[in-house]
C-alpha cells in the first residue's frame, strides 16, 4: 500500500458516496427546486473526485485532459439542465415547499 493508492481509494470512494448523497437528497428534499440543488452540486463534486482519482494513474497528458473535458461537459450539462428545469418549473408556478410539509399534488400531472 503506497501513498498514491491510499489517495486514489479515498478519492474514488468519497466520489461514489457523493453520488449517493445526491440521490439521497433527491429523495429527501421537500420540493422540485431543492432537489435540483442536491443533484447538480453533489454529482458535479462526485464526478470531479472520481476523475481526479483516475487521472492519478494516467501517464498521457492528452488522456488526462480528455477526462477533464468530460468532467467539464457533464458540469455544463448538469448546470444547464438544472437551470432549464428550474425555469420551466417556475413558469408552471410549481409551489415552494418547506421540510415537513407535504407536497401539494397536481392531479392533472399524475394522470
Amino acid at each position: 500500500m503506497n501513498l498514491l493508492v491510499i489517495l486514489q481509494s479515498f478519492l474514488l470512494i468519497s466520489g461514489a458516496l457523493m453520488f449517493c448523497i445526491g440521490s439521497l437528497g433527491l429523495i429527501r428534499f421537500p420540493d422540485t427546486y431543492t432537489r435540483i440543488h442536491a443533484l447538480t452540486k453533489a454529482d458535479n463534486l462526485g464526478l470531479g473526485l472520481i476523475v481526479l482519482a483516475l487521472i492519478l494513474n494516467i501517464e498521457s497528458v492528452a488522456l488526462a485532459l480528455k477526462l477533464l473535458l468530460i468532467w467539464g461537459l457533464v458540469m455544463i450539462a448538469s448546470a444547464l439542465s438544472g437551470h432549464l428545469v428550474a425555469w420551466e418549473a417556475d413558469e408552471q408556478c410549481i409551489p415552494l415547499c418547506q421540510p415537513g410539509e407535504t407536497e401539494p399534488h397536481l392531479e392533472s400531472e399524475n394522470e
Binding site: 466520489g15 461514489a16 453520488f19 445526491g22 440521490s23 433527491l26 429523495i27 422540485t32 432537489r35 435540483i36 443533484l39 454529482d43 458535479n44 462526485g46 464526478l47 472520481i50 476523475v51 483516475l54 477526462l67 468530460i70 457533464v74 450539462a77 448538469s78 439542465s81 438544472g82 428545469v85 420551466e88 418549473a89 410549481i94 407536497e103 399534488h105 397536481l106 400531472e109 399524475n110
Partner: peptide, 27 residues
C-alpha cells in the same frame, strides 16, 4: 424518485442523475 414522481420535473432530474452516474460508471 422516478417511480415516486410526483411531477415531471422530478423525473427529468432523476434522468439527469442517470446521465452523470453513467459517465462515472463508464470512466
Amino acid at each position: 424518485r422516478i417511480w415516486r414522481g410526483p411531477r415531471m420535473a422530478d423525473r427529468i432530474m432523476a434522468a439527469q442523475l442517470t446521465g452523470s452516474t453513467g459517465v462515472a460508471v463508464l470512466l
